[in-house]
Design a protein around this nucleic acid. Structure first.
Length: 815
DNA sequence: ATTCATTGCTTTTTT
DNA sequence: AGCAATGAAT
């Protein structure tokens, strides 16, 4: 369907030096992609085909051959991680620095655009960004104000509705509301917008939508950026939603009779087979739309895989073949077949976990694999629990990805709220978050009065405090005065000093130091200071901003970009953000500079921080399949390959659901370099009850020749080789296998690690020293309870005395 | 204001 | 089952 279009790099008549060191080691397809001539192009980059390398080399190539200066390049990604990776690689490849380019996430770049043109966009210069939590609390507040029945309109659903509308590019007036429920939602959407506007805040969707509208409605501005960005590169194009696609079109040129006209070149890199975010609005269809509307001339497929052995790729290829909606692509490798893909069936999820743990022990002990090169992937987060407990009991270090991110933690959010109030006393989300935290006797009643007063007077909460009388009024005024003092105190101070002062004045530190679980919260607040410090250093605040000469057309000014005066000390937000001939840091209209504090707050919202657990040394990696995208490991376990779980039953409702699940499986398989294990269990504890599931249909879709069934080993081999016997424990067999409930001794013959309940002694005894991954070494003061309920009281020198549940806390006995 | 009890939710997730 | 968030009781 898509012909491979190998280009020799000499189409535009001026053959660039094909022997450039940049092109060394690239295969023909990669080289063709890197040296593409001007014009729009689509690169279908299979898993492990060197996609990031192609993207970065392409940029380096464009610069090196003088086709464009850094200012003429935009590279868009989805995650901060990907953007960072691109930056890092580019800095390594290029002799000069990378700052002049616009490299970032969609939201990051939108933020940049809106900062530069906040006036045209109708936003205050210091607008702040609401994350998902903030958005939810804003909606809750709204619902309360308008007495919305939160049974019928759960705030969470409203936030989904609003985000969904924005992703589709729809303002309240654009939504077709047929039924009264939708009408009500649209009404609330409208009110929510007004509230955000009043408070000077934007949510993630708004960043995208607002900057799209800015470009759409301001022809001069649009023309400027269209001229500036000669080359636009988009990573993970299959994950773009409708709005992001429309946004790209605005930057790339003008639509004339359904065809895009413009002088810029858009390179979209993606893999339709790895599209796993349709559930949150991604449109794979953007790929074919792109080809049609942009009049794409060149399509290149990167099918050479440098990651996995043949059996793994054969499995991936065979599986994805079952999808009908594909552009068509087959991965190949020179590495040989490698080991077969191992498949295992276990009677229960506990056995499955035990088996995985045993296998990992062998891999590490006998085969010399390092733990961090082993990943356990699962469809849903709930599955990690069992595996974690088995790993823990076996004393194998592991790391779970996902969960709370740094800037999302309650104490950090509290601190950020105070900081936001310093900048903007009218930020009501922040105001309400901390007006009574730490508790200062301002109850719900007082707040209600304040809200009524503010509404009556048509002013913000903080302005309304003086109008509230009585004891409540005094307390409220005290709070506002506290913030005012803080604002004056920190005027002109460094970010570090500001945060330290805030922690003191707010009473947060005092509060947490009296809390019993407060020690690690204080730790996190201290960490906030560190985060701010490294933000300041990295972003180069405090150094003089240097003007960057911007060529109108974005064309190379000189052959040596190093001489263009790009200064690495330029903070990203200070860059001349367009506006014709803008000068960084000074131009009041376009290059307005944020204070370090403001910039840090933006950073905190836009980049929620690492969500990895302790960056432990050599630990087995646990994560959902979604989280594994873009990563690779020597050994991969995929657990829970059962109907209803993977493919997940909730995903099967819509027509594309099964295919998306299959792509998810495809992503999972292609993470493995050397060895792949697939596993399913006959029964599983799910939502508190034991369920019995058939093996996943995906197992049927793999090539028999690439697989090796291990189940025989355990005595359940009678069911293998597999699916032919599937009916035997199908729906009719539900009762029959009821006795496999995880109770009593292990039925299964491969129990490398004894079941938890069989171990009354966890080794943790009064008087012993234990090690906790976070708190360090501590002494056991007491032990209580048995089995899963066992708890120990442990005294840590740096974190005080804590009660820890042994089933949860990661403790190892120190001899 | 703090603590305890009840209720609801539970696919995947970035920004 | 387990957790978070809400509501009632002290």
């Amino acid at each position: 369907m898509f012909p491979i279009d190998l280009l020799d790099g000499a189409h535009d008549g001026t053959p660039p030096s094909q022997n450039s060191p940049l092109l060394q080691g690239l295969n023909d397809e990669q080289r063709a992609a890197v040296t593409l001539p001007q014009g729009h192009a689509l690169v279908l980059a299979g898993a492990g085909s060197g996609k990031t390398r192609v993207l970065t080399t392409r940029i380096a190539w464009l610069l090196q051959t003088g086709q464009v200066s850094p200012g003429g390049i935009m590279a868009v990604t989805f995650t901060n991680k990907a953007a960072k990776e691109m930056n890092t690689r580019l800095s390594a490849m290029l002799p000069y620095n990378v700052r002049g380019m616009w490299i970032g996430t969609f939201h990051g770049l939108c933020n940049r655009l809106l900062r530069a043109h906040h006036q045209a966009a109708g936003l205050p210069a210091t607008f702040q960004i609401l994350d998902t939590q903030d958005q939810l609390s804003a909606v809750k507040r709204l619902c309360k104000q308008y007495n919305v029945d939160d049974e019928r309109f759960p705030p969470k659903q409203l936030t989904w509705f609003i985000a969904g509308c924005k992703e589709e590019g729809m303002r309240p007036k654009d939504v077709v509301a047929a039924d009264p429920d939708t009408k009500k939602k649209v009404e609330l959407y409208q009110l929510y917008e007004e509230q955000c506007q009043r408070e000077g805040v934007v949510d993630f969707g708004e960043l995208m939508l607002r900057s799209f509208e800015l470009l759409r409605d301001d022809a001069a501005l649009r023309a400027h950026y269209q001229r500036r960005f000669r080359f636009i590169l988009v990573d993970e194009f299959q994950d773009t939603n409708k709005l992001q696609y429309a946004w790209l079109k605005q930057l790339a040129g003008e639509m004339v009779n359904g065809q895009l006209q413009g002088s810029s070149s858009v390179l979209a890199v993606g893999d339709d087979d790895q599209s796993i975010y349709a559930f949150r609005g991604a449109r794979v269809g953007n790929m074919s739309d792109f080809v049609r509307e942009f009049g794409v001339q060149h399509q290149i497929k990167l099918e050479q895989n440098y990651r996995s052995y043949g059996n793994i790729l054969d499995s991936a290829n065979a599986l994805i073949e079952h999808n009908s909606q594909r552009l068509g692509k087959n991965l190949r490798t020179d590495q040989g077949a490698g080991e077969p893909v191992r498949v295992m069936e276990s009677p229960t999820d506990l056995d499955e976990a035990s088996w995985i743990v045993g296998e990992i022990k062998d891999l590490v002990r006998n085969d010399g694999y390092s733990r961090q090169e082993i990943a356990i992937l699962y469809r849903s987060n709930a599955q990690s629990r069992v595996i974690e407990s088995k790993l823990f009991n076996a004393g194998i270090p592991y790391r779970v990805y996902g969960g709370m991110r740094f800037f999302e933690r309650a104490e950090v959010k509290h601190a950020l709220a105070y900081l936001r109030l310093i900048e903007n006393p009218h930020d009501e989300t922040s105001f309400l978050r901390v007006v009574n935290f730490p508790a200062r006797g301002i109850g719900a009643r007082s707040i209600e009065t304040l809200q009524e007063t503010a509404r009556a007077a048509g002013c913000s909460l903080s302005d309304a405090v003086t109008a509230v009388g009585g004891a409540a009024g005094t307390k409220l005024q005290g709070f506002v005065a506290k913030i005012d003092v803080l604002r004056e105190d920190t005027e002109g101070k460094t970010l570090r000093q500001t945060i330290e002062r805030m922690l003191e004045v707010s009473g947060l530190i005092d509060f947490y130091s009296t809390e019993k679980e407060g020690a690690d919260r204080i730790e996190n607040l201290k960490e906030l200071i560190n985060a701010a410090e490294s933000f300041v250093t990295q972003e180069g605040f405090g150094k003089d901003a240097v003007a960057l000469p911007v060529d109108e057309t974005g064309k190379a000014l000189t052959q040596s970009p190093a001489s263009q005066g790009i200064d690495s000390s330029l903070p990203m937000l200070d860059l001349p953000l367009g506006g014709v001939g803008a000068t960084a840091g000074t131009d009041a209209e376009t290059g307005e500079t944020l204070s370090p504090l403001q910039a840090f707050l933006v950073h905190a919202a836009l980049e929620a921080g690492d969500n990895q657990a302790q960056a432990g040394q050599d630990a087995v990696q646990l994560m959902t399949v979604h989280a594994s995208k873009g990563l690779e490991f020597d050994v991969v376990f995929i657990g829970g390959l059962e109907e209803g779980l993977f493919p997940h039953e909730n995903a099967m409702s819509d027509k594309g659901g099964l295919e998306e699940e299959r792509r998810l499986m495809y992503v999972a398989i292609t993470r493995a370099r050397k060895r792949l294990y697939l596993s399913h269990s006959q029964s599983r504890m799910l939502h508190g009850r034991t369920t019995f599931n058939l093996p996943s249909r995906f197992l049927d879709e793999l090539p028999e020749g690439a697989l090796k069934w291990l189940s025989a080993k355990g005595g359940f081999g009678s069911f293998a080789p597999k699916i032919a016997a599937a009916g035997a424990y199908g729906a009719g067999a539900r009762g029959q296998f009821g006795s496999y409930t995880p109770k009593g001794p292990e039925i299964f013959a491969n129990p490398v690690v004894p079941v938890q309940k069989a171990v009354p002694g966890h080794g943790i005894v009064k008087g012993k020293s234990v090690f906790h991954t976070k708190f360090g070494e501590g002494k056991v003061l007491a032990v209580e309870g048995t089995g899963d309920d066992a708890r120990a009281q442990i005294s840590f020198p740096r974190h005080g005395t804590k009660w820890l549940a042994l089933a949860i806390a990661k403790l190892t006995v120190v001899d």
